[in-house]
């Protein structure tokens, strides 16, 4: 994937990093129909988001299709400014993308 699909903001305050992430993804449920053709639009959604903090697994999210389009995710992990946060997502079609960011 050429274009980065993830935006991450990580801010450290009082030894806690607040990570906010936005992922660009259509998150199709597989239930909607195309209005013109009447055909069901196949499901296409993110199934898993992994987050690493300084190379260690900090959080893993298992998602169903009921997460909104262009998902937003925020969580908090103990750490300090300068730590690396890495986010990786994988969808049901096997596509994936990842991004590394430094906590500010």
């Amino acid at each position: 994937m050429a274009k980065k699909s993830i935006k991450v903001r990580a801010k450290a305050k009082n030894d806690v990093i607040t990570v906010k992430a936005l992922i660009t993804h259509i998150m199709e449920t597989g239930l909607r129909k195309d209005k013109k053709t009447g055909k069901v639009i196949p499901a296409h959604f993110i199934q898993s988001v992994d987050c690493e903090h300084n190379g260690k697994a900090a959080m893993n999210a298992e998602w169903g299709p009921a997460i909104s389009k262009n998902p937003y995710l925020s969580f908090k992990v103990a750490g300090k400014s300068g730590d690396t946060i890495k986010l990786t997502w994988t969808d049901n079609k096997g596509n994936s993308d990842s991004l590394e960011a430094k906590a500010k």
Binding site: A58, M59, A66, I67, S68, P71, L73, F75, K76
Partner: peptide, 27 residues
């Protein structure tokens, strides 16, 4: 979400050092 066609929306597994805090947007 109780009345969704498939109620389970997401499960977040926390590692050590991750706080019990999650924010997201759902359908």
């Amino acid at each position: 979400s109780e009345k969704n066609g498939t109620p389970l929306i997401a499960k977040f597994n926390m590692g050590a050092g991750t706080e019990a805090y999650i924010s997201t947007r759902i359908k």
